[in-house]
Design a protein around this nucleic acid. Sequence first.
RNA 1: GGGGCCUUAGCUCAGCUGGCUAGAGCGCUACGUUGACAUCGUAGAGGUCACUGGUUCGAGUCCAGUAGGCCCCACCA
Length: 895
Amino acid sequence: MSDTGPQHELSARYDPTGIESSIYVRWLDRRAFHVAAEDAVDPYVIAIPPPNVTAALHMGHGLNNTIQDVLIRFERMRARDAVWIPGTDHAGIATQNVVERDLATEGLSRHDLGREGFVERVWSWVEQYGSTIIEQLKTIGCSCDWDRTRFTLDDGLSRAVREVFVRLYEKGLIYRGNYIINWCPRCRTALSNEEAEHRETGGRLYHIRYPLADRDGEHVVVATTRPETMLGDTAVAVHPEDERNRHLVGHEVELPLVGRRIPIIADEYVDPEFGSGFVKVTPAHDPNDFEIGLRHDLPRIDVMNDDATMNAQVPEPYRGLDRLEAREKVVRDLESLHLLSAIEDHAHAVGHCYRCDTVVEPRLSLQWFVRMKPLAEPALEAYREGRLRFHPERFGNVYEHWMTNVRDWCISRQLWWGHRIPVWYCRECGEVLVSRVDLTECTACGGAVDQDPDVLDTWFSSWLWPFSTLGWPEDTPDLKTFYPTSTLSTAPEILFFWVARMVMAGMEFVGELPFTDVLLHGTVRDAQGRRMSKSLGNGIDPLQVVGLFGADAMRYTLVSAAALGTDLQLDHEDLESSFRVGRNFANKIWNAVRFALGHVTLLDVEADPGTTPLELADRWILSRFSVTAADVTRSLDRFRLHEAAEASYQFVWGEFCDWYLELVKTRLKGDRGEDSRRAAAATLTTVLDGWLLLLHPIMPFITEELACHLPGRTDDDTLLRGPWPAPPVEWQDVEAEQRMEAVRELVGTVRNLRSDYGIDPGRRLEVVMARPSSAVAAALDAETEGVLRLGRLSSIRRVDTTPAGEPGAHAVLKAGAELFLPLTGVVDIERERSRIGEEIVRVEGLLTGTRARLGNPRFMEGAPAEVVQRERDKERSLEERYALLVEKRSAFGPG
RNA sequence: GGGGCCUUAGCUCAGCUGGCUAGAGCGCUACGUUGACAUCGUAGAGGUCACUGGUUCGAGUCCAGUAGGCCCCACCA
């Protein structure tokens, strides 16, 4: 589309509509994101945190996947074999919930379909909607290797899951047992500790009298936040050294409402200082009580059904009541029996199901567990030895703490959607068979077998993701080439759920860390600082943002707003203000290139660069570009994406557009001769091409679109493979930077004075200059025309000393020069005197500070030579300015 | 109960290993249609870097404490 006169095709406003999708298709057509193991020499690999297959893209995904895409594109441009492995997670509970809700609208439950029918139904749901989020990732530009898309429940990954289960079982690291687990009465399944979210809740502490069974009229008082569990009490405990109460050990109390006689026992767990020193013991509904129960061989009475209604273990009046109803009734009944001695407010942390937010019930239950300690050790060691790094670093502490105190992992779930537990129980001999292949009969006695009905925790497949996606347990070429992966980027919320467990799995099953660097990004919040969520309705749909402003605008905004590990705020009620930065920047880029394209031709670019001498502005912009490229590279290397974004922005807008383009405009028209024109055109194109590359990881679409319009490039060109800009160090040019600094200060000062005195912007002024430093003089010689044009000056008159007593404005440049702007009839002497006076005070202050430092012997000894030198230079230039300013002021005569 | 983080311009935030005459974007004020861009340009106002001490020649940056906010972990009922 760009062979001739491309400038005519670019509109004045950047409109990403259509451009982005067609570019994306072009990339796909070339299979540009695919890398085969055989071809990979220097792999850089990211395994995507697989979004739930039920998910629709939200801003959190938008941010995380933009970050990953930036890194992948950056490395790909650096000629590494960058592979980004995409996929989705079957998300056991979440997906089952979605399909069950679906069924409910037809008046059906999963039980109506039966297990097989239900699972089929979920699969068809997945087939229909499962690729939604994958498609959405393409919309925001993600350059995943789509040929490698995986699903945690597909055949290969299922095989990995089963292999892992069997291995751990054989190693004695998986066991089945009756323990207190977190039970979600709504999902009717066990949860892991991590899946129970503890939240501070305002509750009550009830003090209940338990009458002593053998001493009439006497009682002990226990305190509880959950009176309904008393129905399952099997003991009352005191601390063995509790002077007040230990004489009661061995006695019994009669459990109110139930009538059961239960013993008073002594156990270290009890805090004698708390309350009355007595604790009710409910081994089936509290983890501590469970432990006490073990030590004292107490009966465990589970008083609830799966849905947290009271079961047949409780007295008739309470049966069938929900636990909260039961609580109220228990309290009422105790009250009427005068057994409630007090109720006080009491805040405590209550667990909630991370999927449905129902209050979790600690409950005794037969489940499968993974012994974590042995897995944690190598994972901890890897971190301590510095082989595993977190960004920001502080998350290392969090990881270490969790790893050190890791508890066993409850992995069985009472769901239908997921990896079925590969365990069979023999009906005949009771043998427990754990197998890599499905069994139909007992391997011991040949009897009929039943497979465990439960499925595995979703995370039991996710924790294998970095290698299961590469073909493990087969020793595939992919696994050999692409494992370990390089960087993992994710949200801190799943540090334990996923990141820590992946590290353990990688070490255990492949013998190597799954990745070396873990990037934890912040949370996307709304204008009030609240987390974006469906229930609050304060989310922003990335696709809507893409539709309005383009993916690049969104990506730039997100990256620039998300400093490493910090949260970012966006306003869901004002998308424009939220994404304005990126949108405006994209527009700026568009127009800068549009302008340039109107002035450069293929001939300019092909000309031998040695034949046309570069001018000051050319040398300067090359130098600035060189520095910027180095900064951006360094920032990306250190995962400081926002710094890379900001550095590019400052360069493109603040230096390239504001100064270079402005200075070069006349030259491009040929006003300063053909050599000058050509030098400008060649430099312009070189630098433009360079910064388009620099921005490509963050803004892939617009840069790709514009680059192919540049002379020397065609539609077949792509920025995907870079090469990543690595400007020669020779481009860095201290002299040019100093001189351009003088140009900018000169122009800036003139503009400032004009503005201060309200000079008509159209009026051309003459400026008088005296005593320019060599830098200023050289700068002026090189760029007179530019200075005149940008300062709207008619001429610069050089004199030995600026006029005293004439009406006009004085200034002294840092770069070294006196300026005088003759302003007959405009300048008010008093105002000018006070303006200079203020400047004198300011400079004097700086000078005092600098002199104090230089006069301090300890500074002179202690500070590095470089710092001392800088202070000396500063002192000298401040002294000169000071002297000149004082002289100017005195020219006004005594104030 | 432990651990961590934050507090810098009106707003949202940068500021990495101490050298800062403290930055950006937005907002605000004034001026401006100088043919890339009004999704723009030029200039400007605006900060005792939460507070108190300490270390240091030098602290927004390091240390301790105080106040306020946030987060994570935790079996004291």
